[in-house]
Design a protein around this nucleic acid. Structure first.
Lengths: 212, 212
DNA sequence: ACTGATATTGAATGATTATTCAATACAAAA
DNA sequence: TTTTGTATTGAATAATCATTCAATATCAGT
């Protein structure tokens, strides 16, 4: 057998995770390029430059590799909005603006990553796992957002729309716009999406000048 | 060979289309239940109660069967909103209300059909043919909607939000809410979704009492 | 009843792909 | 140097599926 393994040798946890992360990155890229259905271990491991057998050995199964990739994205997303909620220098309106900008930043709302999200949304098979991995964080995000809107409502005396209504509207718009970024990136630029959402807020909080 | 074919015999176009439609219905059900990736000709034809070979013979290929199913949904959707735009008894606001009710009717926004839409959305990037089927109708729907909003803006003197902004916000909310119906049907009932969107319009058109 | 045309079957084929595993390489310890 | 444990390979296996096609059924017209 013509075996020429990687020259990394006896790995410690840290180096070990290089291959781990390389495989996850390759998985995300492959899902984005070919779709969840046409993502094969062969393609992923080729892109990650490890052998096919290794990918399976590391992640135990293809399913587990896919779910690990979802988990990676979910954590990355959580970290990005958590930072904003924890940033004590921001006032409520400043926080909302940062949230909007984060949800349409090129790190978060790029087509590769959206493609992965939507792939998991759409595959019934993964729905239970999706809920396990993401539901908790989704709930925290929503409830933090609602609290934030409550503060702004109190400051501004806007009370026709409840915090829950505004928050639900926001989240559904984000989901809808992410989907549109996928198949019509020309018309749905990050700038367009951010402007649309800010206009929504500007209309609600007419006295607040920062929703440019 | 133990052959026991259907007793329908020498079919005329009308009867012929029974099997055709049975296969399409079975495809939609199967996609909703098992996902696009795990939808096999074997399962679909079993559910439609025809042989595996027949499904392929009728539709030439699996891909074509999938496309036909998408086309069916797309046409059904178009017919439902087209009727509303053509109904001369409705005034602009009445029309918008009907549009909202249609978008969250149990015929249109049921979980089977949403599952199919989302499945195709997620693959649109790799299969331009999916886009071809829906894009044209989406554009017509959007432009009709924009015209409608223009009329209402004129009647009401609401001019802070442009027709395009309102229309885009509406469509992205619908997409987002459909997605949520899939995952969390308990919290995202048709009534909840309709109420949320009507509240959005009520907030814009404060004098209009019909957005209950 | 026979013939031709169309409808329908179901088993066989071939391609794709996840998963397994015995073989090999490497690094550090002894 | 030898040993030992871990990392990694790549070929073999087995399962799943779309697609094909020869065989069979049914019916309309003669």
């Amino acid at each position: 057998m013509n075996v020429s393994p990687k020259k990394i040798g006896n790995l410690r946890p840290e180096e070990f995770s290089i291959n781990h992360q390389k495989l996850i990155d390759a998985t995300i890229e492959t899902i984005a390029k070919r779709g969840l259905a046409d993502t094969t271990i062969a393609q992923v491991s080729k892109k990650a430059m490890v052998s096919q057998g290794y990918a399976n050995f590391r992640f135990k199964s293809k399913e587990n590799l896919l779910l690990s990739s979802l988990k990676f994205l979910s954590d990355e997303y959580k970290n990005s909005w958590q930072k904003i909620f924890e940033d004590s220098r921001l006032d409520p309106v400043g926080r909302v603006i940062k949230i909007i900008e984060n949800d349409f930043s090129s790190k978060i709302a790029n087509r590769n990553k959206i493609a992965v999200w939507v792939s998991f949304y759409s595959e019934v098979k993964f729905r239970p796992s999706y809920l396990t991995i993401c539901q908790k964080q989704d709930e925290i995000y929503s409830s933090q957002m609602e609290k934030l809107i409550t503060e702004i409502n109190n400051i501004t005396n806007q009370n026709f729309l409840s915090p829950k209504e505004i928050s639900e509207t926001y989240h559904s718009m984000v989901d809808g716009l992410w989907q549109r970024i996928l198949f019509d990136p020309k018309n749905y630029s990050h700038e367009f999406c951010k402007a649309l959402i800010k206009k929504y807020f500007k209309n609600i909080y007419t006295d607040e000048k920062r929703f440019v």
